[in-house]
Structure formats: C-alpha cells, structure tokens
Write a protein that binds this DNA or RNA. Sequence first.
DNA 1: TCGGATGTGTGGGCCGCATTACATCCATTG
DNA 2: CAATGGATGTAATGCGGCCCACACATCCGA
Lengths: 256, 256
Amino acid sequence: MHDGGVLRHLFERDGMPVEVPTGAPLTDADLKAGLLREVDLFAGLSLAQLKEISRTLPMTTCQTGGLVTSPDVDEERLYIVKRGRVRLYRLTPDGKQLTLDILDKGRIVGRMSWLAQELTDAYAEAIEDAVICSFTPGELQRLIDRYPSIGLNIIRYLSDRLASSEREREVMAFRSVEQRLATRLLELAHRFGQPENDGTAIDARLTQQELADMIGTSRETLATTISSLRERRILQMENHRVVLLDIDGLRELSEV
Amino acid sequence: MHDGGVLRHLFERDGMPVEVPTGAPLTDADLKAGLLREVDLFAGLSLAQLKEISRTLPMTTCQTGGLVTSPDVDEERLYIVKRGRVRLYRLTPDGKQLTLDILDKGRIVGRMSWLAQELTDAYAEAIEDAVICSFTPGELQRLIDRYPSIGLNIIRYLSDRLASSEREREVMAFRSVEQRLATRLLELAHRFGQPENDGTAIDARLTQQELADMIGTSRETLATTISSLRERRILQMENHRVVLLDIDGLRELSEV
DNA sequence: TCGGATGTGTGGGCCGCATTACATCCATTG
DNA sequence: CAATGGATGTAATGCGGCCCACACATCCGA
C-alpha cells in the first residue's frame, strides 16, 4: 500500500494540529468578492451583494498536501474552494484510498447535521495551494434566509454530485480497469484538459498511485494498463503529466 | 442475463404508453393529507398546510412491476412515494442492472433541469403496488416559495442520498461479494427488518437476481454465497424471504 | 557523495468471480 | 396433465486483477 497518505493521516491524527485553515486571511474586499463571483453557490447575486457577503466570511489558504478537513474534525463547517484543487477521498480501515472527486473553483464540501452529510467519512486534501472560504451552519442559514437563491444553488450542486456518484457506482460495478481508466481520463480531460501540439494534456500533476485511487485499482495494475495504452498510441504519460493522443480511441474503449 | 426487466423495457420503449401514473386519482382530501404527512419533504408543515398542498397535487397509483418513470420519459417531473416500494436502478447497454436504492414512503425521485439530475439515466419500478404523487418544476417552485422549509428538506434528503451513494462506491471498489452481501443485508434489515421467532426477517420479496443486482454481482455467484452463509447458520432464504439468524456474525463479515 | 524517499516498469502466482452449462423444483396455464 | 417458464443450486473453466517481489530511475537532504 502507498503509505505516504496513510502515514500522514496517522501523524496528523495523533494530536498534531491539522495544519489547515490557518493561512493568513485575505483582506482585500474586492479581491474576495471577485473570488466569490466564480462560485456556483453564489450564482445570480449582484457584485454588491457579493461584497456584502465577502465581508463576513473568513477566507484562508491551505498549501499543497494540507488537509482542508477530515472526519476527525468535529466542528460542523462548510468549505468552498476558491482557488487551487482539493481532492476528496475515503480511507478504508486497511489504508486504501478511493478518490471521490477533485474539487476546484466553486465547489463545496462539508458536513452539517442538517446538510451535506457527504463528508461524514471523507477526507479533503489540497493537491494544489488552495484558497478556501468556510461557514458555520448558522452563517449559512443566515445567508439562505437573506438570499434564497443560495438554497436553490445548493440543491442544484448536490443533485449534480449525486448523479455523477451514481454513475460511478455503475462503472465500478461492471467495467474493467481499462474501461474505468478510459472513462476517468475523458472526464479529467473534459474538466482540466488543455490542447497541446499533439493531443490534449490534463492539467494536473498526477502520480500513477493517484490515478489508481481514482478508479479503485492497484498501482501495479494501473501501470500495466497505462503501458498498454501507451503502446497503442492512445496516450502518453511522463513526469506526472498525462497527454491524450487519441481521444476517439479512448472514447471507444470507455463506451464498449 | 435476466431478461424480464430488459424485455419489458424494450417493450415499453417501443411506443407502448408507459403504464404508470395512470391509476385513478385519489379524492379524499384528508386521506391525501395524511399520506403527505409521512413524507420527509413536508416535515415541519402543519396539517392545514398539508391539506392545502394535497388539494393541488395529483396522486396516482402504480401497480407492482410498473415503471414509475424512466430515462425515456422526457417530461420533467418529481415523484414522491407515498405507499409501497419503488426500485431505482440503472441499466447498462448490455442489459445488466444495478439497483441504486429502494425507495419507500416519503422518498423522492425525479429529474428536473435545475434539480435532481439523479434520474437522468435511472429507471424507477414499483416492486409493490405504490401510491405516487408528483410535481412539475413549476409546482415545486411555487411550493418552495410558499414554504421555504421544503427547500431545506430537499437539501437534507439529497445530501443523505449522496452520502450513502459515496459509501457504496467505496464498498464496490474494495469489498468482496460476501462482504458486500453482508453489508447490504444489514442495511436492508435496518430499513425493512422485523423480528421473527428465530431471527430478523427482511420484509420484502427478493429474488436472488434482485439481490445480485443490488450488490453488482452475478446471480450464480450470489447463489453460492447464500449457500455458504446458509451452511454457516448465518441466514436462511426461502421463497423470496431472507431471514437473518446471526446478525453479529453478519456484522463481523461486513466489517472485516 | 551517498543513502533514503518516492515514483515507475514488469513478471509470476494465486484467487475471486463471470461465464457457461446443466439439473431441479416450483407455479402457472393451456 | 403435460408443458412452459421462472427461480434456484452447483460444478467446470478461464481470465482479470491483487499481491508480492523485484530492478531501476530521479530527486532530494545529510
């Protein structure tokens, strides 16, 4: 098993203060309002309203590798990613990880008794330096009372997540590793892809272990699958960058 | 593959009117309000408000085996189960089914562009005679405007579903068939169990195929797993009824 | 300069499970 | 009453993928 993550967890669990929502709070109101603007949760609000909101919300930074939150944190709180990327994952008793989602700008995680149970057993780790903003349940309640559209935005967000989560269940149940990998790479390309001379690069540093955790397989199996796809000129992968060379071929694999 | 479901789908797809929200609408306002009362969605509303609501909502019946709705239905609509049980499942291109959830009293499914994408690719089939009530997006919007607590109830509901869906992803990724079966049986017992002289019976007619679809395995593998558990005096299963004899043993299996 | 981490590539053994192929054993229904 | 079709039990076979055990490369910090 890949012990990096696990050991870090154990370490941090053992009384070490979780190092995270600890960065220096940002101060510039306009900057903060600008960041909020890109958040789906606040879609439909005016800039003035965003400034109003941003005055009250603490915004913190979290550096790569830090835990934004974990099941061990008792406090109920909702986190919104403003900048950077956060990996949401579950940890099995024997140390295996399953990455549930990569959250970027505008996405939310958290746990509140009356909302968002999702994080009950999931860890959230910054995989890039991230700017995070967070609420308590009370603050969120106030916001919803004042701006009802926020409630609707939450509904929309949760139901998107639910739809894709249930799609994943089917994929895990019936598809081979190669098919799951193809599916996942296409999705990553859709979300983080950028054209490159000879194909589409996925703009994220990914180790093979991380990819394996996303599709629920072992590091070794993933490596041989990648090799096979590389031989077939479907993709290439070097120093943590994946470049898709034959999107159509990949799509064909994923759809069989 | 078990073609019962598939053939029925094909049949119904081919222009046959989906036979479902077609039962005679119920008329007694008090009865309807009583049914609404048990629905989480309307938690927190007074009986008078429920009567008010029930006047406007169509309530229909759907008999065992009927499809409440399917991805082929274009209309956007939200369904609430009042009576009976509805099985929510996905269908793969090659005819395999994965049961996502069993919905009973008070649970909702549906698809709306601004809410509840969940049903985008899922079928909902009554596995017992059911009473269903449904909204259009407009009606729901009106209800939320009038009774904001409904919006919060939806959020709570979706986030529950999301949490359990993501738990399922982990289970599918890492657990053996026996472990998945144990986990699922415990969950079914929790939701539908009733004590019996020698154990806990699961109050639902379940074929082995249906159980297999719930945990994403084949009918044959499930049969041998059941046999093994039966030999170990952990459960018994006869004419579509499962009785758990050794809950602790089962829990031990599921937790390893 | 030398370990020690950390990431990658590959091969062999083993086992879980999908698949295939039957054989019962009902419950219908003609 | 046979006949049909659904649900069940079980055994043989093959393969995908996990686990283990390496060999190697790169990038550190001491």
